[in-house]
């Protein structure tokens, strides 16, 4: 076949496509092919070098990131300048989703550990999409809301456990725990 034509008609293999990656994310698990194709036009794909800062604690947050390849470390800086790692995320994980709908500051910092490709989904794009395709945006938002409430519930249970543990050991003032971290 003519190489020019083969180039035009060549389809990206299913595993490589962004839609396939998005479908495997917990947030978008319930979405159909059409919705995923639409999300493909919304998200931004960004490449990061190793040890590059994605965002710092206190930055204005405006969206979430999903890891397509590579690893990302989520950490907070302690007052004496040390980094305390909260989580180590790999491909398929996502982070920063708490600032997607409400403008807020990042409560932790994120840094890549190796060459990483991140897929960013931001509030501004979602709001704009909501004007045009409310139905699809609804499906996305329901998925997000479900994930968020799952995480919130898990955090609440963790807080309760920690509080009872703290009151059991020290029987003094309960420890303040940031539910976001």
């Amino acid at each position: 076949m003519n190489p020019l034509w083969s180039n035009i008609f060549r389809k990206k293999s299913e595993e490589d496509s962004l839609a396939h990656f998005l479908r495997n994310l917990a947030v978008f698990a319930d979405l159909g092919r059409r919705e995923l194709n639409f999300i493909e036009t919304l998200v931004h794909s960004r490449r990061y070098a190793p040890a590059e800062i994605v965002f710092e604690e206190g930055d204005p947050g405006s969206g979430m990131y999903a890891i397509r390849s590579g690893r990302v470390s989520i950490f907070v800086r302690t007052p004496d300048g040390q980094k305390e790692q909260l989580a180590l995320l790999g491909p398929g994980d996502f982070f920063g989703e708490s600032t997607l709908m409400a403008p807020a500051q990042r409560t932790a910092s994120a840094r890549t550990l190796e060459p990483t490709e991140l897929i960013g989904l931001f509030r501004a794009d979602l709001l704009e999409a909501n004007q045009k395709h409310p139905a699809i945006t609804n499906a996305i938002l329901i998925g997000l809301a479900r994930t968020l409430s799952e995480r919130l519930q898990a955090a609440e249970i963790a807080i309760r456990k920690l509080r009872t543990a703290a009151s059991g050991t020290t029987s003094g003032t309960p420890i303040d725990i940031d539910p976001e971290s």
Partner: peptide, 20 residues
């Protein structure tokens, strides 16, 4: 979008938010 995508990673989020 293409213009905003040219900004370096560190400032991308801010640039994207501000441009919208």
């Amino acid at each position: 979008r293409l213009c905003v995508a040219l900004t370096p990673n560190r400032y991308f989020e801010m640039a994207h938010d501000l441009s919208s």
